[in-house]
Design a protein around this nucleic acid. Structure first.
Length: 419
RNA sequence: GUGGGCGUAGCUCAGCUGGUAGAGCUCUCGGUUGUGGUCCGAGUGGUCGCGGGUUCAAGCCCCGUCGCUCACCCCA
């Protein structure tokens, strides 16, 4: 049987890689303005890193991880998300010393064993951002503002920022009790999923699509925040207002990972299908400590690159396709040899050269040239070899000039400017 | 893990109540000496996902299987 790729993974082919490179170039342009530097991390880690950080009872840990034993018998997991690795590296390299805020971003593949669907893959790429070392709401807002500015640069027009507060370790248990008692009054109206999980993960019911009606009537966490979290949340809102960043408060917004507290947010788009979140994140003030580092409040997000690629209007970025500058057409053995030499020299001068290695008829070579969408064709025939003057043709205008061999590079530059 | 839809040429898809396959695009080559795109002409290309079954006869009907896709759960 023919071998094909694993279910839920995708090849990114040369014809569309420029889209990814374009997005990455915007990342490298915008993120450093806010003080973020790139970090590159391994794509597999000790399994315990994820079970401890993400939470034993989450779906990711319970059924979605790619976990295997390596030859030494250690349990290894392909990373299902990036934050755990960043925190591990932060603690491992004692990056908290000297103590100051540290801002990093990463780009790379994540792995989750799920049934693929629109906008969901088993190997997918994320851009993640982590700002580590400050509890200030200013950090929350700077990061969210950076994100929305990033989307704006990419030309996205239909993104909605939703925010919520998940409170703290102190107020959440209280609220949880209130919520469970309230839910128990409506047990018969809940979907089967929710009746099963209301004890274990009652917050999820707020977010359930089927139980939306009941969720509306349930008590909201933002009405039961501890004073410090309430203060934090209201500062986040007023800072967003003054930054002019549009948002809406969604009291039912819950995050799937255990480590979040206080600010949680999500960016959604209507043009994505059922999986409508393009980005999710929030504050995680205790994770670093839980992974044996010093108390380090953090804020971060992860955004799905495949989903982003499907949303960006790339009309203005097409010039990033690296078509050849010149396609060399040659006729006859002598010209074929000469073309080899000329291609070599022009490439050393930084010009993108393509040619036809199998030199068929002129017509067929010109057709190939046209297909590469090169800007120029350099025509080398017996006449040109004899005279030492080559023909340079502008493929857009059809205009053609004669050009002495020695002056090829400068002529090309000149011709290139004038057209 | 559960459910719906779909597997026919490189791509997008037709194919009637069963009679051993078609279109458009692409590709290749031509349309008098060495010039692409547009136009015109010709040609290449398919074990109809795979395996069984029913039938004189299966792309079409039945069973199984694999794959893709969308949705649920959950999430980027």
């Amino acid at each position: 049987m023919k071998i094909q790729s694993i279910r839920g993974v995708k090849d990114i082919l040369p014809d569309e890689i420029w889209k990814w490179q374009y997005i990455e170039s915007i990342v490298h342009n915008i993120f450093p303005r806010y003080g973020f530097r790139e970090i590159r991390l391994p794509i597999f880690e000790n399994t315990r890193l994820f079970t401890r950080s993400i939470g034993e009872a989450t779906d990711i840990v319970e059924k979605e991880m790619y976990t295997f034993q390596d030859r030494g018998g250690d349990s290894i997991t392909l990373r299902p998300e990036g934050t755990a690795s960043v925190v591990r590296a932060y603690v491992e390299h004692k990056m908290y010393n000297p103590p100051s805020i540290l801002k990093m971003f990463y780009i790379g593949p994540m792995f989750r064993y799920e049934r693929p669907q629109a906008g969901r893959l088993r190997q997918f790429n994320q851009i993640g951002v982590e700002a580590m070392g400050s509890p200030s709401p200013i950090v929350d807002v700077e990061v969210m503002t950076m994100l929305m500015e990033f989307f704006k640069q990419l030309g996205l027009t239909d993104t909605q920022l939703q925010i919520n507060s998940l409170g703290s370790q102190e107020c959440r248990p209280h609220y949880r009790e209130i919520l469970i008692t309230e839910i128990e009054k409506h047990l018969d109206q809940l979907c089967s999923n929710c009746t099963n999980r209301y004890q274990r993960n009652p917050l999820r019911i707020l977010d359930c699509k089927q139980c939306g009606k009941i969720a509306e009537g349930l008590p909201k966490l933002i009405d039961h925040l501890d004073p410090a979290s309430a203060e934090h949340f209201s500062e986040v809102q007023s800072l967003l207002d003054s930054a002019g960043t549009p948002y809406s408060v969604n009291p039912n917004l819950v995050r799937g990972l255990d480590y979040y507290n206080r600010t949680a947010f999500e960016v959604t788009s209507q043009n994505l299908g059922a999986q409508n979140a393009i980005c999710g994140g929030g504050r995680y003030d205790t994770l670093v400590e839980e992974l044996d580092g010093p108390s380090t409040p953090c804020f971060g997000f992860a955004l799905g690159l495949e989903r982003l690629v499907s949303l960006v209007p790339f009309d203005n970025a097409k010039t990033l396709q690296k078509n050849p500058d010149i396609f060399i057409v040659c006729l006859g053995d002598e010209a074929k040899t000469a073309a080899f030499q000329i291609a070599h020299e022009l490439r050393l001068k930084g010009i993108r050269i393509e040619r036809d290695y199998d030199a068929g008829s002129m017509k067929s070579q010109m057709r190939k040239a046209n297909k590469t969408q090169c800007r120029f064709t350099l025509i080398l025939g017996e006449n040109e070899i004899c005279s030492g003057k080559y023909l340079l043709k502008n493929m857009e205008t059809g205009e053609q000039i004669e050009c002495p061999a020695q002056e090829l590079a400068t002529e090309i530059a000149k011709f290139s400017e004038s057209s």
